[in-house]
Simulated assay, not measured.
Amino acid sequence: MPTPALQPAGSGRLPRPRALTEALLSRWPLPDPGDHADKETRGHVLVVAGSHEMPGAALLAAIAALRAGAGKLTVAAPERVAQGLALAIPEARVMGLAETRGGGFAARDCDRLGPLAAQVSAVVLGPGMLDEARSVAFVRTMLPLFRESTVVLDAYAMSAVGDTPFDQPVVMTPHAGEMAHLTGLSKEAVLDDPLATVLAAAQRWGACVALKGSTTYIAQPDGSALRFAGGTPGLATSGSGDTLAGLIGGLAARGAPPLHACAWGVLLHARAGAALARDQGTLGYLARELSAQVPALIHALGRRSPGKNAARRG
């Protein structure tokens, strides 16, 4: 549900965002579990996503989380699509949850997920959800159960925002239209001043917020921000955002702090699109093809990171 219209906090000149580049990420190396780590060490990600109309959103987010390096995957999806997802993702444990009449997640079934809280490092919540109002009730019931996990909110799950900040690690991934819906601003106002909008949103909700677009802005509650202008037109395609949410969740499951997971996810997503554009052309590649590019990209970036050995020792 949209909250009352958001206004940028404070007055005067906005802070200048840092450029999100490979050089910056080299100072934020991803946690390296080492050569002898098992799947538990690499982190467990829970993807709660999908609907009978958009089961593919859960599939895209789940595969992306594994491609980002998470060691274990659990997918929770509406009952009528769970079996299909289990067959499509043999690497995952898949749970079928009760649905509302509108095809969303029923809050009464949150208790079934509670026992996973002690095991899960990160949660991706929202891709492909239906029935916004009842899905919000589900999300608000679920969040306290996973207070110790980094939670990536996408699509309708983001509508669980309120007037008070989250009291747990949260990453949000709205595009301009979703940000307008969440804040009460017009889409034009969001596009006219994306930096001010994302800074105000991050401060208001106490979350790391990535405002997606041809230029993506990432803001933190402390007023700091990143700017990334390296996307490609082909990324504007169905399922691309689901893939990004899964990448961020997988990186967070590995142990990356929310800002680092978000920044790495945004850059890897864009570089995967650029690789496909070189091979296939600027437009027409599919969101399902993005994730397969990611492991090699992480490997290449990691080799250039001066902090790799330090991350392994940590």
Rank of each mutant, 00 (worst) to 15 (best):
T197Q: 06
S121D: 10
A202M: 10
S121K: 09
A196F: 04
G213L: 13
D193N: 13
A180C: 14
P115C: 12
D167A: 14
P169S: 12
Y217F: 15
P174G: 12
E132K: 14
D131E: 08
T173W: 07
A160W: 02
A92S: 12
A98S: 13
S186M: 09
L191T: 10
G206Q: 05
D163A: 15
L145Y: 00
R93F: 01
P221T: 09
G223P: 08
L113Y: 00
L191F: 04
P127C: 13
A200R: 05
A137H: 01
K212W: 06
P169W: 03
E99F: 00
A98P: 02
R204V: 11
I218A: 08
Q203E: 14
E132Q: 15
A219Q: 00
P169Y: 01
A202P: 09
R140E: 11
Q203P: 01
L113Q: 00
T197H: 02
R140F: 11
T197F: 06
T216I: 08
T150E: 11
G126F: 03
V120R: 00
T216G: 08
V152K: 04
H181F: 11
Y217R: 04
L191V: 11
M95I: 04
P165C: 11
V139N: 05
Q119T: 08
V161Q: 01
C208K: 00
H181C: 15
A200N: 06
E148I: 03
G206K: 02
L97S: 01
L97A: 04
C208L: 11
V152Y: 02
G128M: 06
F105D: 06
V120F: 01
P174M: 13
A196T: 02
D111H: 07
V209A: 07
Y217A: 03
G184E: 09
V152G: 11
A207M: 09
P169H: 04
A133S: 13
R108G: 15
A219V: 05
Q220R: 12
S149T: 09
M142G: 04
L125I: 07
T215G: 07
F166K: 09
G162R: 05
D167S: 14
D131C: 09
A157P: 06
I89E: 01
D193G: 09
M129I: 08
A201D: 08
F105I: 03
T183D: 10
D109C: 00
P169D: 14
A189W: 04
R147A: 15
A92F: 08
V161G: 07
R101I: 14
V198P: 10
A200M: 10
T173S: 12
G206S: 09
